[in-house]
Simulated scan of single mutants.
Amino acid sequence: MLIDYHTHHERCGHASGSLEEYVKKGIDIGLQQLGLSDHMPLIHVDPKTYLPGMAMPANELPRYVEECFLLKEKYKSQIEIKVGLEADYIEGYEAEIEKIISSYAWDYVIGSVHFLGEWDISDSRQLDGWDHKDVDDVFTQYYDAVQKAVKTGFYDYIGHLDVIKRFGRKPKSDMIEKERQTLNLIKEHDLAIELNASGLRMPVEEMFPSERILIESHKLGIPLTIGSDAHKPDQLGLFLDQARNLLKKIGYTQLATYDQRKRIMVCL
């Protein structure tokens, strides 16, 4: 089955293209399921310090959801659209996150960590956040945040599990123990992870997560889905052929799909 469960569009401010352009592109490239999964609005950064285009404005969230469901109905004979949200985990703001998630009828919710405090570790404009920090400490802080996200029970799967490596920073230690702790928690809480192919177009030039993490996930029996993390329509499905080939090599035979927050396994 050809699916892409991780996409962003113009409302988030750092992507381009309308939702309908993504749907049409998905039909063109033969996707059977397309997940629309834009970023939730920011709830913890002082608006005065916002960099342009960090996330969808709060007043656009209901419009986003409404348009997703309209397109789901409009194109139902051509493609199956899943209505999703990439919901940041931000420690100390659990109540606000839960309110956003519980307010809409999502098909799935991606749990992602982009922020350590007010520092967006995935934003190329904020690379100075690494200055004067120990890389090992940052990696440890990141995985601790992912583990806290898992424990909330808010999410259906964890997005780009090792995105902390995005800009090529490498810790001195191998982080294997932190990775294992995180994967064991994911297994314990019956979550899935995603293979996010966008890392191949990032400075790290490696998918999220690494093959090492994927192998361990497979050993643990953790379900997995895939996404391009497209930020413009032409990126839809990008590198997903390589992602599927890697999964087959490791031994995966199924992908996780979602409907009304229920996981449905389909043949890879």
Rank of each mutant, 00 (worst) to 15 (best):
L31D: 07
D123K: 01
F208M: 03
E67Q: 15
Y75E: 04
G237Y: 02
K82C: 10
D162Q: 11
I100K: 06
Q78L: 14
D259V: 13
G237Q: 02
Y157G: 01
D162V: 10
M175N: 12
W106C: 08
E177W: 01
Q147G: 10
K262M: 11
P203C: 09
F208Q: 00
D137Y: 11
E194W: 02
R11H: 10
A105Q: 11
S122A: 09
D123C: 04
D107Q: 07
A55K: 12
D229L: 08
M265T: 11
P47A: 12
I110N: 06
E91A: 12
V23H: 03
C12K: 07
Y155T: 00
Y5S: 13
L240F: 06
V138N: 04
Q235G: 01
V23I: 13
H44N: 14
K170M: 12
L240E: 04
Q126W: 03
K170L: 14
V45S: 05
K48W: 08
I193C: 01
K170C: 10
L85K: 06
L200H: 12
H9M: 15
D162W: 09
G153D: 09
F139W: 12
K187T: 03
N59H: 14
M207N: 02
Y252I: 06
S122Q: 07
N184L: 15
T140Y: 03
D162S: 09
C267T: 08
T49R: 14
W106M: 05
I164K: 09
M40E: 12
A256M: 12
L71G: 00
R63V: 10
E73F: 02
Y5R: 07
H231L: 10
E60R: 01
G117S: 10
D144L: 11
T49G: 02
A95I: 10
G84D: 00
H39S: 10
A192Q: 06
L238S: 07
I164S: 05
I226C: 00
A55D: 08
L71R: 05
S16I: 14
M40V: 06
I101N: 05
T49V: 13
L247P: 05
S173P: 00
V45R: 11
K74Q: 07
E96Q: 15
G17A: 06
P47W: 11
E96M: 11
F208P: 04
E194F: 01
Y89H: 13
S124R: 09
G35L: 00
K151D: 03
V23F: 06
S37H: 02
K82L: 15
I158R: 01
S103T: 02
Q235H: 14
I222F: 00
S122M: 09
G17H: 05
P233C: 07
A55C: 13
E67Y: 09
Y75T: 06
P171L: 03
E86T: 09
V113D: 00
F154D: 05
Q126V: 05
L214Y: 03
Q254I: 03
H9N: 13
I176K: 15
S217P: 10
A243T: 14
Y104W: 01
Y155I: 00
I186Y: 02
T182K: 02
R263T: 13
D123Q: 02
D38C: 07
I186W: 04
D4K: 05
K165W: 05
D241N: 13
L268R: 08
G221Q: 09
Y108Q: 00
A256H: 07
I90E: 02
Q33I: 15
Q235W: 14
